[in-house]
Computed example of a mutant assay.
Amino acid sequence: MVVNERILLVEDDREIARIVCDFLRKAGYFVTWASTGKEGWEDFRQEEYDLVLVDLMLPEMDGFTLCKRIRLESEIPVLIISARNEQESLVHGLDIGADDYVTKPFRLEELQARISSHLRRYRRYLKKDQEENQTSYLDGLKIDFVKEAVYHYDEPLLLTAKEKDLLFLLAKNPFQTFSKAELFQHLWQQDDQNGNHTVTVHIKSLRTKLKDEMKSAKYIQTVWGVGYRFIGEPNP
């Protein structure tokens, strides 16, 4: 049976990773293994995957943080595999966007069944999403998330790569408030306290191109003392 879907496995236990990789590859999946949370995040950003398997206790970046970052970028299925079976970890994992939680030790056949189930749902989601890949908002803004294009009253907007990343992150998570530190860490991949100024400059430039006045914001609203959020209202 040919499957050919791509799975990212983020697991620091070399023996578990080897067993899972061998089993899934024999089942027809392409599997990439990352041994740290940071390596997993870099792999996710560089390649296209259909599903991610994430351990919680990872070096460099824990599994909760990795799940949260992935969910901000993508709707692909994320399955947590962990030896931590306490209810608090399970609930927290699902709250931050994971689709399932598999407790170690697990049967490989059960893991494959869960993977197949989530991939079927994701394929249905993608089919629907491809039919609705553009979102039009009141006051002339249109975003094509698939082609990564932005229009204002049908005129293409020339945004820098970081301006586009900033707009897409906010627009994909409407009414969710992000602090400047969170935006800088997520988009610039750095933990730099001086990044607040960088974010402010890019927000100002983006607002100028969108003709979005801060005092009467239509798209990007400042939440004083906290950060920014996207408030664009989709066309009915």
Rank of each mutant, 00 (worst) to 15 (best):
G28C: 14
S179N: 08
M61K: 15
D43P: 00
D212E: 01
T177D: 01
N133P: 00
V199C: 10
I115T: 05
E73W: 07
E155Q: 13
K204V: 10
R107N: 12
E86H: 10
T177S: 05
E182V: 08
R124W: 04
P236R: 09
Q193I: 14
R84I: 11
Q189A: 05
I81E: 01
L119D: 03
N173M: 07
S179A: 09
S117Y: 13
A149V: 13
V223N: 03
D165C: 09
V201D: 13
W33F: 04
D139S: 09
Y151N: 08
A149G: 12
D55E: 14
L170H: 06
F145G: 05
E109K: 14
G93V: 03
Q221D: 01
D191S: 08
L183C: 11
N194V: 03
G63D: 12
A113N: 10
Y122M: 07
L183N: 13
V150R: 02
M214L: 08
K164E: 04
V54D: 00
G195N: 12
D12I: 02
D129W: 11
F175N: 06
V78M: 06
F168W: 12
V10K: 02
L8F: 12
D192L: 14
A98L: 02
M214Q: 09
K180A: 06
W188L: 11
K38F: 00
M61Y: 08
G28F: 11
L119P: 01
A161W: 05
D129L: 08
Q221Y: 02
H202V: 13
F44Y: 15
E182R: 13
D12Q: 03
N85P: 00
L53R: 05
S89Y: 14
F64A: 04
R45Y: 11
S179H: 07
L167I: 03
L9I: 11
E48Q: 12
H92N: 04
A217R: 05
D129V: 02
E182Q: 15
R107M: 13
V201L: 15
L24N: 04
T222G: 06
R6V: 03
G97S: 10
R121H: 11
Q190K: 15
L126Q: 14
L158D: 13
T135D: 02
F23A: 09
R114W: 01
D212M: 01
L90S: 00
F30M: 06
